[in-house]
C-alpha cells in the first residue's frame, strides 16, 4: 500500500483501520490459480423476478455448479439496460464480470442516438444460450381460429390495436413487423406493465399481442385467448401447436427473443473458451432444457465465434425493423 508519509488525516486513518479489519476477513488466496478462483459477478440489466432474470438465474445456477464457484447475480435495470451493459463494458476483463443480456442488447444501437459503449468493440461474446419464441395471441371473442382469417379480418377493420411492453421492445418490434409483412394498419399501444396489457387483450380492448408463452397459458386454458402463430424459427418445444410465422408464407419472419452471455472486451481467450464450453454442456443438458421449457424458453446454443458473426447481422436486422416500425431515435 502506498501512502504519503507525514500528516495523516484522521479520516484517512479511520478508512485504513476499517479497511484492514475487513481486508483480513475478506482475504482469500485468490492469485494465480485456475479460472475461476473466486466468485463471478453476472450483471443482469433487468429487474429481479423478470423473465430475463429467471432465465439468467437458471443458467447461472448450472454454470456455477459446473465451475465450482458461486455466480452472483447483480440486477442493474437502470437506464433501459444501458447502465448495466456499460458497467460490464468498463469492467476489468478478467472473467469475473459477465453480462447476461437479451434482445434489447441488439436493439439498443438502433434505438438510441448515443450509447456509452460500443456493442461490438467493447464486448467479447461468450455464447448464445436461448431462443424464446414470442406467440401471437388474439382474444377468443373475435371468434377467429387461424392466422389467415385474422389477417383478412384485420384488413377489413383497419385500426386494430396491438399491445407491447414498450417502444422498441422485442414485443413491439414483432408486432410492428407483423403489421408490415401482413399489410395491416394497426395501432401500437405500449404498456408499462405487461399485466395490464394482458388484461386489455383478454377483454378485447386490444386485438393482438406477441408475448412469451407462460403469461398466456392461464388464459389459453380458460379459453380466453387463441394462439395463431409464433415468432420462432421452429415450433416451440413448450407449445408445439404454435406454427412459426414462416409456415404461413411470411418468409423472413424469424424474430425470437434470445439471451446470451458476454464478457468485457480483452477477456483472455482461455477464459472465454472455458465459459463457452461449459455453456454448451448446459445447453445440451436435458434437465435444464426441461426447466427452461417450463418458463417458455428453449435452450439454443451458439458458440462464441458464431455469436460474433451473428451479432452484426442481428443488429442490422433490428435496425431495419425499427425503421419499418417507425420508432424515433431516443
Amino acid at each position: 500500500m502506498r501512502l504519503k508519509s507525514g500528516n495523516l488525516h484522521p479520516l484517512g486513518l479511520c478508512g485504513l483501520l476499517a479497511a484492514f479489519t475487513v481486508a483480513v476477513l475478506a482475504a482469500s488466496p485468490a492469485a494465480a490459480q485456475e479460472y475461476p478462483a473466486k466468485d463471478i459477478r453476472m450483471i443482469v440489466p433487468f429487474s429481479a423476478g423478470s423473465g430475463a432474470d429467471a432465465a439468467a438465474r437458471q443458467i447461472a445456477t448450472r454454470l456455477s455448479e459446473k465451475l465450482g464457484k458461486p455466480i452472483i447475480i447483480d440486477n442493474m435495470p437502470a437506464g433501459n439496460t444501458i447502465v448495466g451493459a456499460d458497467t460490464v463494458a468498463k469492467a476489468t476483463p478478467d472473467g469475473y464480470t459477465l453480462l447476461f443480456h437479451a434482445t434489447q442488447f441488439i436493439v439498443s444501437p438502433a434505438l438510441f442516438k448515443t450509447l456509452p459503449y460500443d456493442t461490438i468493440k467493447d464486448f467479447e461474446p461468450v455464447a448464445r444460450v436461448t431462443s424464446q419464441s414470442l406467440l401471437l395471441a388474439i382474444p377468443t371473442t373475435l371468434k377467429i381460429d387461424n392466422l389467415k382469417d385474422f389477417v383478412a379480418y384485420a384488413k377489413k377493420n383497419p385500426g386494430l390495436n396491438y399491445a407491447s411492453t414498450g417502444l422498441g421492445s422485442s414485443l413491439h418490434l414483432a408486432g410492428a413487423y407483423f403489421d408490415h409483412v401482413a399489410g395491416l394498419k394497426a395501432n401500437h399501444i405500449p404498456y408499462k406493465a405487461a399485466a395490464q396489457a394482458l388484461a386489455d387483450l383478454v377483454r378485447g380492448d386490444v386485438a393482438y399481442m406477441f408475448y412469451p408463452y407462460p403469461p398466456f397459458k392461464p388464459h389459453i386454458d380458460a379459453g380466453k385467448l387463441k394462439i395463431l402463430g409464433s415468432s420462432g424459427a421452429e415450433k416451440p418445444a413448450f407449445f408445439p401447436e404454435a406454427q412459426p410465422m414462416t409456415a404461413f408464407g411470411y418468409k423472413d419472419f424469424v424474430l425470437p427473443a434470445w439471451h446470451a452471455v458476454y464478457a468485457p472486451a480483452g477477456t483472455p481467450k482461455a477464459i472465454i473458451d472455458k465459459l463457452d464450453k461449459t455453456l454448451k454442456e448446459i445447453a445440451d443438458d436435458p434437465e435444464t432444457r426441461a426447466k427452461m421449457s417450463a418458463i417458455g424458453i428453449d435452450l439454443y446454443y451458439a458458440s462464441s465465434a458464431e455469436l460474433k458473426k451473428l451479432l452484426p447481422q442481428e443488429i442490422e436486422k433490428y435496425a431495419r425493423i425499427i425503421e419499418i416500425a417507425d420508432v424515433p431515435k431516443q
Binding site: S47, A48, G49, S50, G51, D53, A54, R57, Q58, A193, A195, L198, A199, P214, P215, K217, P218, H219, D221, A222, K291, A294, I295
Partner: peptide
C-alpha cells in the same frame, strides 16, 4: 395465483419464483 397477473412488483417477483420452480401461475 389465479391469473398470473402481478398487481405489484412483489407479485411479479413471486411469479418469477414460481416460474423458476417450474410452476406457471394461473387457474390451473
Amino acid at each position: 395465483l389465479t391469473l398470473g397477473i402481478p398487481t405489484n412488483p412483489i407479485m411479479a417477483l413471486m411469479i418469477g419464483v414460481m416460474m423458476i420452480q417450474g410452476i406457471i401461475p394461473g387457474p390451473s
